[in-house]
Amino acid sequence: MKQSKIKILKRGNLKVVSTLPNKDMFYGNPYGGAMDYTAAQMVNILLNQKQSLKVIECTFKGSSFLFESNMKVAIVGADMQWELDGKMIQLNQVFEVEKGQVLTGGFSKNGLRSYIALNNSIIDDDNETIVLGKENRRTKKHTIFDYQLPSSTIIHIHRGPEWKLLNQEGKEKVMNFQGVISQNMDRMGAYLNGSVIELANEFPKMSVCTFPGVIQLLPNGQQIVLLQDAQTTGGYPRIAYLDRVALNQFNQLRPGTKIEWRLIL
């Protein structure tokens, strides 16, 4: 079976990701995978292909791609004003492209991350050839489909293992926290700017297990949310965490967004 190639013409901030996490965290590998699981899985569903196939994750700024043969494409997630040969294309639906056409995305207007899936195709990235889609024999036509970017900036959090190291004032500060996602954000973590929170009890100097969505309290009283590519252990207290749904939501919010925590009791 011949697989056709999609070529990166102009690289924005992109990464080819699996929709599933890594299996080898025991050896120190990060959890990994798509930052917005829902969008990444749904874009494969749209093309009627296995949900676990790799997809292209574009963050904040789209890229330019050249199709080296005809294929089917779908994009789900942030609105990056995607254009095919200069003509605007719709999100959340399958479109057919022809050999030689160029797909281009700009800065995201809404949301942070776009996911692109292609059927029967490969991409060369980081000196590696990655399979994005396999030949699709099923011919089911339209999947009824509605992906929506999060509209709320209120994020639900749960108490973390070190919640008990906060005193009443600290707990209330976290529960009523309003802050801003700083520019200092990548696939490993996002620093927040907000009021300073202090621990009432000292956190012992040792490393503990971390995971995507965990909120660490830094020595300067600010918080950081660890994301999919974070290291697997860390030395800061884990005061709270976002569950999977909340993390999906958080991962579509752009740096500079004002957020609020809402504690689930």
């Binding site: 996490p21 299996k23 965290m25 025991f26 040792m206 503990v208 297990c209 995971f211 697997t232 252990t233």
Partner: peptide
């Protein structure tokens, strides 16, 4: 068990 991470005093089981 999908994943396991350990630290000095903990095990995190996925």
């Amino acid at each position: 068990l999908e994943n396991i991470v350990s630290s000095e005093t903990e095990l995190l089981l996925y």
